[in-house]
Amino acid sequence: MDTLAAPLTIAFDYTRSLGPVLGRFMAGLRDHRVLGSRTADGRVHVPPLEFDPDTLAPLTDLVEVSPTGTVVTWAWVDQPLEGQPLDHPFAWALIRLDGADTPMLHAVDTGTEDKIKIGLRVRIRWSPSPTGHIRDIACFEPGTAPERTGHEIGDAVTIMTTPIRLHYTHTTSVEEDRYLRALAEGRIVGQRCPACCKVYVPPRVCPADGVAPGEVVEVTDKGTVTTFCVVNVPFAGQRLTPPYVVAQVLLDGADIPIPHLILGVPSDQVRMGLRVSAVWRDRADWSTTPENIDHFEPNGEPDAPYESYAEHQ
């Protein structure tokens, strides 16, 4: 039987500060000019290097090269992937621009594979909405560029934004799967380490002994707050609105606490040793997720003595 799996997408618009060399290069692209950096040996590198490969000195000499160049090698793409420069079949190519000594990578729009070849002369197709970014080059296309059409190069670009969006499938372990399926039935299960006999909730390889877990143990949904924190601050990625209390809750029958929310009590009354019970969501909403337990709240039992949880903070 396959264990539970679910998609996970990670996305962020990264803000790349460019520094003096790349900042001028991107400004050039914005203004329809291509700049390369000239190294101590006289070679012109496009895209520009920031430091000389031989002397390692910072490079300051940027020179303009042509927006027309020659295909050095290529690879055809039948099905473009998310984020690539064109959404129809195209060729990746290393293209040596006239005046440059090194080739650069970009997409070439030839329509069909039979039109791309080594030695093909290609020119830049500029993006209609330049922002000072490598993608101000929309792609290359067959042909040669007319005489210079760009304006003078304006101020260097400071930051370029680069969205990164990746998709994963998160697959659960056998133990995690068992735990989640029990939660869907309103039960909390742990597993006992066959070596140290400690009960882990959720169950997992025993981190102390490095052995697979053994006996499945059902624990209660009552426990003790061993320690806690009052979160008053908003931060990126946060799912809840502050203030809220996140506590370590040692469930009765478990040997390791789980972090959870403590509600139903003013935050200044949450304390170490407080006895709490799980508040489950409406049964109709249960699924294979820890979110079936909405939060914990005080259950009125007398506080647990410090010694009973001192080892579990």
């Binding site: 679910a6 998609p7 979160v231 931060f235 929310l261």
Partner: peptide, 18 residues
């Protein structure tokens, strides 16, 4: 950094505290 450290994998409780 807080975003990168708070990415919540599926099947976990949304108990992020930063």
């Amino acid at each position: 950094a807080m975003w990168a450290l708070s990415i919540q994998p599926p099947f976990t409780a949304p108990i992020t505290a930063g």
